[in-house]
C-alpha cells in the first residue's frame, strides 16, 4: 500500500543534505509551511540556498532562525526588505542574493517541474536583471534567456491531502505551492487536514500525488495575522 504519510518531523526531514537548494512556498504569511521550516531549523542542514518569494519580515519566525544560525549561503527571491534579517545579512555580504522578477521566478519553477530547461521572456529586458544574460529578439521584442530553477527539496503547505500526496489548497494559500511541489527531487508537504484516499474531489485536486514524497499532518489552524 502506498502511504506517504509520515508520523514525525524527524522522518519528514530525514536525508536533507548540506548544500541543498530548498524551495519554500507561500506568499506573505499565507501558505507558508511554517512547521516544516521549523523542522529544517532543527534538522541542521547547512550551506543552503533558499528559494522564496521574499526574504521574510523582521527577525522573527522560523525562516529568520535559518539566517540567524548562519545556515543560508544564498537566497533567491523577488523581494527583499532592508529591515529583514535576510536583508541585513545580504547588505553586509554574509548571504549571497539573486533577485528575480516574480513572474520569472514562478516560470523558472514551472519550467523545472515540466522539463523545460530554459525559456525566453520579455520580462526584465533592458534592466539590471538581464545583465550578463543571453538576450534575443523574438517576435519583435527583446527577450531574456532564463533557466529552469530546480530544487533539491520543496517545503509545501496544503489544506487537505491524502496518503498518495494528492492535495488541495485554501484561497491564497495556493500561490507557489503547486509549482514548487513539482520542481524538487524531494517534496515534503505539511497539511492542515488529512483526507481518506478517494475523499478529495478529483476535479479539485490541485497537486497530484506524483509530485509529493512525504506528507505530515500539522493542524495548526489559521495563519498568523500579517
Amino acid at each position: 500500500m502506498i502511504n506517504k504519510i509520515v508520523r514525525s518531523m524527524d522522518e519528514a526531514m530525514s536525508g536533507i543534505q548540506d548544500g541543498s537548494t530548498v524551495l519554500i512556498a507561500g506568499f506573505g504569511h499565507v501558505g507558508q509551511p511554517i512547521a516544516l521550516i521549523q523542522g529544517l531549523v532543527e534538522q541542521g542542514a547547512r550551506d543552503l540556498t533558499i528559494v522564496s518569494n521574499s526574504g521574510g519580515r523582521g527577525h522573527t519566525g522560523p525562516l529568520a532562525r535559518l539566517f540567524e544560525q548562519d545556515r543560508v549561503r544564498k537566497i533567491i527571491c523577488s523581494f527583499l526588505r532592508a529591515s529583514s534579517l535576510a536583508g541585513e545579512l545580504v547588505r553586509v555580504g554574509k548571504v549571497e542574493l539573486e533577485v528575480v522578477p516574480q513572474g520569472t521566478l514562478a516560470e523558472r519553477l514551472r519550467a523545472s517541474g515540466s522539463g523545460v530547461q530554459a525559456f525566453f521572456t520579455p520580462t526584465g529586458a533592458g534592466t539590471k536583471v538581464a545583465e550578463g544574460k543571453e538576450t534575443r529578439e523574438i517576435g519583435g521584442r527583446e527577450c531574456v534567456l532564463e533557466y529552469a530553477l530546480h530544487g533539491d527539496v520543496a517545503l509545501i503547505e496544503a489544506w487537505r491531502a491524502d496518503r498518495w500526496g494528492n492535495a488541495m489548497y485554501r484561497a491564497t494559500g495556493r500561490s507557489y505551492n503547486p509549482i514548487m511541489a513539482a520542481a524538487a527531487k524531494l517534496t515534503i508537504m505539511q497539511t492542515q487536514h488529512l483526507a481518506e484516499l478517494g475523499e478529495l474531489d478529483s476535479e479539485a485536486i490541485t497537486t497530484p500525488g506524483i509530485y509529493v514524497n512525504r506528507v505530515i499532518h500539522v493542524p495548526y489552524g489559521d495563519p498568523p495575522p500579517p
Binding site: S78, F79, R81, A82, V90, V100, P101, G103, T123, V129
Partner: peptide
Amino acid sequence: WAMTENDPAPQIGGAMDLAVG
C-alpha cells in the same frame, strides 16, 4: 524598484512582469 544601482534590498516583486505584460 531600487533607489541606487546596487540597492542591497531590491523590491522588484511583480512589477517587471506587469510592466511588459
